[in-house]
Design a protein around this nucleic acid. Structure first.
Length: 576
RNA sequence: GCGCUGGUAGCUCAGUUGGAUAGAGCACCUGGCUACGAACCAGGGGGUCGGGGGUUCGAAUCCCUCCCAGCGCACCA
């Protein structure tokens, strides 16, 4: 992949010129221009710099432009109060497009970092529901992009496989299973099973007592109980893998590091906190009090690491996980793709882990929050009342709707192929709907908007890709032939070529805050630029040199569309 | 009460960290398939950027204040 970054290039160029013009710490403020009359890029930093130096902005801009006289690949123009508008020449674009290498390593980052990504993390007591979509899809994109940039990525699926709720599940499982019967048959619908068990827990006191007994048994590693638990977990994990596979998520069972995996560390964590003098007993619980945390009425807010009944809350587990990621994995950075409601909790985890020396100061622990998914009436999906929409059902519905559409648009396609395309299109639409808005706020789940296949959606990008592939089905010999020289004359092809060359910029912008919508926006603009080019610039009917040039442009566009979509975990097809 | 988010077109959302006349998609209206694929393209209408004040050459963006919504604030995860 081409590692040209135009914005960076211009930043270096303008900053240098500003320095020569007498500005000490130049900030060029290079932006992509919003309007064609302002050029392709603009430097906005002259006004601020002139103010600081006590000179007139337009005069400074003029001095800077004078310094750049030798650069024939850009046109500079001073506008308004002191903007420098920058136009890329066709020569610059053609040269870089000709040199564009499809199969080079990306290497947008020279330094390779180890990044742990904590995402998905379903509770194995129940089936994955719509609420898991955000963490899973957003986190998976981060993993793919960081790997694409040659970082070492450790996927951490911190699944919930421990706690009191497993008491009633195991007690119920034990109660309804006939000896010798395969228990997996009882768990085909994990959701219903969970509901039945928790209902029984509420209405039947004998059962509730038994459930509590099972919790203790499980903690003591009672062998029969533990085996039952292991089977339950294995089946539940299989459910997850089925969902991951359908959703094209890169998580495997090897990425699972469950809560229970830290069980043996929990007493050690408390011991070490004790050794550091951080522990205080309060109402029978072992707590860490840090000054920065205040609760209601300004009362000190504890981070409880051991409950008064001797049990360990999830904060203890998260501390153990943080320590493991710091000391064993030796992470440079740990990203938590976890809901916004966990913000205080994670701040406590990071602060306590740091105070206790479980993590090192130079290691970056970051929470990347997101909001809840609401029903159409604005009420949240509750976890206990069974109102959750199963994730697998959402995926099947998406595929079903996509099939209906394809069948209508392209009925001559063999049915087997239609089904395969429907998977790719339906799943792509769901994921893109998530990724294209990376807001930290709640949002309303709506079938129709989520499964729309028009406008700024994954199918639009996939469709652009198939249109390009269609060109090469008509010119198969052009597919692998290099271009000697690009000839770009029409606005539409110049704008498309610029978009192509901005891919690295989009990746860099994404990595600032892991906001996938930036990547989506880029890909949408790329596809949109292609559609305009395709409408306006004939390809196959043109003379050979123009045809070669345009086919090369189309080829590179297709490659970036496919690469970009793959970073979002979205697939492409040859025809749809 | 305190803290964290957020409030932008009828709806869903962008807005590159203070830049030029606030942008997309959906929906609505008009035009374009005998045409490299119409899941598309060209064009149109639609805004008190929650209200008010302030900072400055310049504010959706920064500061203050108020209103509204969501989430969180001691032993469920």
């Amino acid at each position: 992949m081409n590692s040209l970054n135009i914005k960076q290039l211009l930043d270096d160029l303008i900053s240098q010129a500003m320095r020569h013009a007498g500005i000490d710490e130049p900030i060029a403020q290079i932006r992509q221009s919003q309007k064609p009359e302002f050029g392709h890029y603009q430097a906005n930093g002259m006004m601020a710099a002139a103010k600081k130096a006590g000179s007139a902005p337009r005069m400074l801009a003029q001095r800077v432009v004078d310094m750049l006289d030798g650069h024939s690949e850009f046109d500079f123009e001073i506008a308004g109060p002191g903007f420098i508008n920058i136009r890329l020449t066709a020569q610059f674009i053609e040269r870089n497009m000709t040199d564009f290498q499809l199969h080079e390593s990306p290497a947008t980052r020279a330094d390779t970092r180890t990044v742990v990504i904590d995402y998905s993390a379903p509770n194995l007591a129940k089936e994955m529901h719509i609420g898991h979509l955000r963490s899973t899809v957003i986190g998976d994109t981060a993993a793919r992009v960081l790997e694409f940039c040659n970082h070492r990525v450790v996927r951490a699926n911190h699944v919930g496989d421990w706690g009191a709720q497993f008491g009633s599940l195991l007690a119920y499982l034990d109660q309804i299973t006939v000896p010798g019967e395969e228990i997996s048959s009882k768990l085909v619908d994990l959701e219903k099973f969970y509901q039945s068990a928790s209902k029984l827990f509420r209405v039947d006191q004998n059962f509730a007592a038994k459930a509590r007994e099972y919790v203790v048994k499980l903690q003591r590693k009672d062998s029969r109980c533990h085996k039952l638990w292991e089977k339950f977990i294995a089946i539940s994990l299989d459910h997850c893998q089925t969902v991951y596979h359908k959703l094209n998520i890169s998580l495997t069972q090897a990425d699972v590091k469950a809560e229970s995996a830290y069980n043996d560390d929990l007493p050690v964590i408390v011991e070490q906190l004790q050794g550091r003098g951080l522990l205080t007993e309060s109402d029978g619980a072992q707590c860490v009090f840090l000054d920065e945390f205040k609760g209601q009425n300004e009362r000190p807010l504890p981070a409880i690491v051991r409950k008064s009944d001797g049990g360990y809350p999830y904060l203890a587990t998260d501390l153990a996980a943080a320590r493991y990621r710091s000391q064993i994995i030796n992470a440079d950075e740990v990203l938590y793709f976890v809901g916004a409601s966990q913000q205080l909790h994670l701040r406590q985890v990071f602060a306590v882990a740091s105070a206790a020396g479980f993590t090192k100061p130079q290691q970056i622990f970051r929470h990347l929050p997101f909001g809840l998914i609401l029903k159409a009436d604005g009420k949240p999906f509750k976890t206990r009342d069974g109102a959750d929409v199963k994730l697998i059902d959402v995926l099947d519905e998406a595929t079903r709707r996509a099939f209906t559409l394809i069948n209508e648009k392209n009925s001559s396609m063999p049915e087997q192929q239609q089904l395969a395309v429907a998977e790719v299109v339906g799943i792509g639409a769901i994921k893109y709907a998530e990724l294209s808005k990376n807001r930290t706020t709640d949002y309303i789940f709506d079938w129709d908007s989520m499964l729309s296949f028009e406008g700024n959606t994954a199918p639009y990008l996939q469709y652009a890709y198939t249109r390009i592939r269609s060109l090469f089905r008509k010119r198969p010999t052009q597919e692998n032939s290099p271009v000697n020289r690009m000839t770009l004359t029409e606005d539409q092809e110049i704008l498309l070529a610029i978009r192509v060359l901005q891919f690295t910029e989009a990746i860099d912008a994404y990595l600032e805050d892991y906001q996938a919508n930036i990547l989506c926006q880029y890909l949408y603009e790329l596809a949109s630029s292609f559609m305009k080019f395709y409408e306006h610039c004939p390809v196959l009917s043109e003379a050979q040199d123009i045809q070669d040039s345009r086919l090369h442009l189309a080829k590179v566009t297709a490659h970036i569309l496919q690469t970009g979509l793959s970073l979002l975990g979205i697939q492409t097809v040859e025809q749809m």
